[in-house]
């Protein structure tokens, strides 16, 4: 019996070292089996497959999700900063949140004077 195989990549990235493993898996493989097959768990013992968050192309997915050809399986690391704290800090500093690289929206509140000052 021949099992159809698909090509995927498994990626784990730390600031000092990033590992991209290209491999062939069975077409019914899941994220978990692809990660186990890639050997990344042996290379980076700090990854705990039970608790780690994983995903495909920037979207978190469950470990038993199916793979498509060409998928990039990504193993994530938790944040260091607390987004809520970071937001409070920014608000305290009086900076406005921008989204998508655009100019800060004119809110009509006290932020407006500062947005004008930036221009």
């Amino acid at each position: 019996m021949t099992v159809e195989r698909i090509s995927v990549e498994v990626v784990y990235a730390r600031p000092d070292e990033q590992l991209v493993v290209a491999l062939q898996v069975a077409s019914d493989a899941t994220l978990q089996s692809a990660i186990e097959q890639s050997g990344i768990l042996q290379r980076f013992p700090e990854i705990d497959i039970e608790t780690v968050k994983v995903g495909i192309f920037g979207k978190a997915s469950p470990l038993d999700a199916a793979l498509n050809p060409g998928d990039r399986v990504e193993i994530y690391r938790p944040l260091i900063a607390d987004p809520k704290e970071a937001r409070k800090k920014r608000a305290a500093e009086g900076k406005q949140m921008t989204k998508g690289g655009g100019k800060a929206p004119e809110s009509g509140e006290d932020g407006e004077t500062e947005a004008a000052a930036e221009d």
Binding site: V11, Y12, A13, R14, P15, Q18, V20, K53, G55, F57, G58, K59, A60, R72, E74, Y76, R77, P78, L79, I80, P83, G101
Partner: peptide
């Protein structure tokens, strides 16, 4: 924004640039 998809990460997960 990355045109070459070299940043690994998802919502509320650490983002990391693949240097290569």
């Amino acid at each position: 924004a990355c045109p070459v998809d070299c940043i690994i990460g998802a919502a509320k997960q650490m983002h990391t640039v693949i240097a290569d």
